[in-house]
Design a protein around this nucleic acid. Structure first.
Lengths: 207, 207, 207, 207
DNA sequence: TATGAATGAGACTTCATTCAT
DNA sequence: TATGAATGAAGTCTCATTCAT
């Protein structure tokens, strides 16, 4: 290890540099999307905003779509981290608590960067590679299905797949719509009430 | 009225012609959207498909957006007609029947032209005038809120607004996603099961 | 016919206008090719040189290649016109006269616009649609083959196809190279000598 | 020489390495040209194909053009080697034999790497430094002119320069076109016939 | 001397919209 | 009122070349 004290850093240096460039580009994409909307997010503008030449942009992302995919994936990863954490927390808790926590987490996740979430949801045409970026729901579905499996004793007999579909789709829609289109619902008490209602919706269905 | 016996027919004639042109353009837009996607739906192509010169297109629609708005409104009107009819049917029926019927109607509505619905939902950036074309949900919300008001006696005490929001958002999401992304759920028995589940979801919540 | 005195001219007018635009574009392409070379012949520059917007350019030519193809075809047509005229002239003449005239015509053809001919021959990559623009030779081959057929009595027994190939290829190469790369050969006497030699080459072969 | 016993081997080593790198780059260029065409032959791609970093590529070749020039020269050297060998063989032979052999050599030369020859001939714009890479013909011309000088006794009185021009240009064109565009002419008997005809063409002219 | 990340001019092309006829 | 030729800003992407490490 000591033989190559300069080599390794050099290589790392360039890896770090690359990583930084990539990061800067994704960040810049997010910033422009939020600030100006998808229309204005040209690759030239993104490069400029990132302080990266257009040539470098295309070194790392072979198309504009690739950039957006990367951003969506990053965003989904962040949302899912919140959800994972919540489910971890309530693994041992009774279903009522767990579902409530999950709903709260869904709201929290949508609040991580609501403007970005909205642009990603509403302005990005689901075309080409974007056609199947349903990341969040698919993963959340599997996660919740497994959770229901582990809580089988507490719920009525269910087609787990169908139930997970119904629950996750509903929770996602309710929290998404509330956070993005009904900000008035999300005052402190409002949010409390919304969590109550959504949890009741799901629990009434599962029990 | 008698003063303009010649003008009126002629005017009617031209009104009819206008109507036909408008109709042809909206139809052409739908056709291209379904066949080729939003990307390929240029105004020139739409005009061509409709057999209308680009100049005339702009006589009837001041912008591309206006054309899309018209199409979305027409589509929403068609969807809502299905919903209205369903609710009319079950005005006198008990809530269980009504909700089940409503869910079935939501599926039927999404099946009127699923390809178009999908393109409208997924490929058209919600930007500018399109930002607030939530037509369906808003109107459905108001409709269902009123329905709940009339059925107050059958449900638990509710914040009608909040309840309508939760129900409509869920039903819309579940039916939309099932129809557009889970065709395997919509075999004959599958659809039956889905209606059961969605109705149970809503009724468990309302009762 | 008298009912539509304005319609017809209008249509013609636009046809003429189109024709003029197309013509201007092809002309501009030739001019830029000769003046600046193929490298510099960008579509934007061609449009500018033609006084035609880039949008119009693409209305008439779906790609840069199409523009070049059109130019090559026009050029080939002009070259061939010279050759056709020459062959027409000597249809009744003995072979010696005919071949001599043909060689002279080949030189004359290459001199119609030698700079353009050179650019077309040397700078334009034979790729895509350009791969098979052998127009001149193919057509000349067929023409000469037919000529040989009509003069069968004057020549030795020949595989007409092979003979036409050998003759046309040689004449084309000799005249092309002389005109484009050996201008010193084409003084008045020089040209005379070259015609003598090329004719001798071909006649020595055919007789 | 003895003063630098260590330097020299090391230098040699590095010279060999350089030579190998240069060779690899030229080889890679040829490979890409043949496989993908000139369009796709970017310097980055060539470096990659050669296993040489783009930085090193520019250490050895100051420009893309230089690389292509090197390849063309190598290719021409190989072609000419075939021609030289043929002429050497027939130095003492009568003209008929010599010319026949020369034509056969021209075909053989074009068959060394016909795909590469075609790309070099048809896809590479003769621009800048490439403008005058007529290597083959110029050298062949001089060679044949000298040959004719030595065979003066066997031919009719000639302007040697002019005669060499006519012969070499014709042979080159006929063999080039046959090999690259008329593969059907080059079956075993076909090639025989072609050699006969081309030799007859030249001999008919020289005698 | 080798490496490969970075550069950025500039190429081709599309499309919403205008306007003369 | 209809037509469709014309417009040109703006977008995506490539590639020869440079230069810090």
């Amino acid at each position: 290890m000591a033989q190559r004290p300069l080599t390794k850093p050099r290589k790392q240096a360039s890896q770090e540099r690359s990583r930084a460039t990539v990061e800067a580009l994704v960040e810049a994409t997010a910033r422009i999307l939020v600030r100006d909307g998808f229309d204005k997010a040209s690759t030239n503008r993104i490069g400029q905003e990132a302080g990266v030449s257009i040539g470098s942009l295309y070194q790392y992302f072979p198309s504009k779509e690739a950039l957006v995919v990367a951003l969506i994936q990053r965003h989904n990863r962040q949302l899912m981290a919140v959800v994972y954490a919540a489910l971890d927390e309530v693994e041992e808790a009774p279903l009522e608590i767990g579902v409530r926590r999950l709903v709260a987490a869904a709201i929290a996740a949508h609040r991580l960067d609501p403007k970005l979430h909205r642009v990603l949801a509403e302005q990005i045409p689901r075309t080409g590679a974007l056609e199947d970026v349903e990341g969040f729901n698919r993963e959340a579905h599997d996660l919740f299905r497994a959770y229901l499996g582990r809580k089988r004793a507490e719920v009525r007999p269910l087609d787990l797949d169908l139930a997970a579909f119904v629950c996750i789709t509903s929770i996602e829609a309710v929290t998404h719509t509330a956070v993005l289109h009904r900000p008035e619902m999300l005052t402190d008490e409002g949010a409390e009430a919304l969590v109550d209602e959504a949890a009741r919706l799901v629990l009434g269905y599962l029990l």
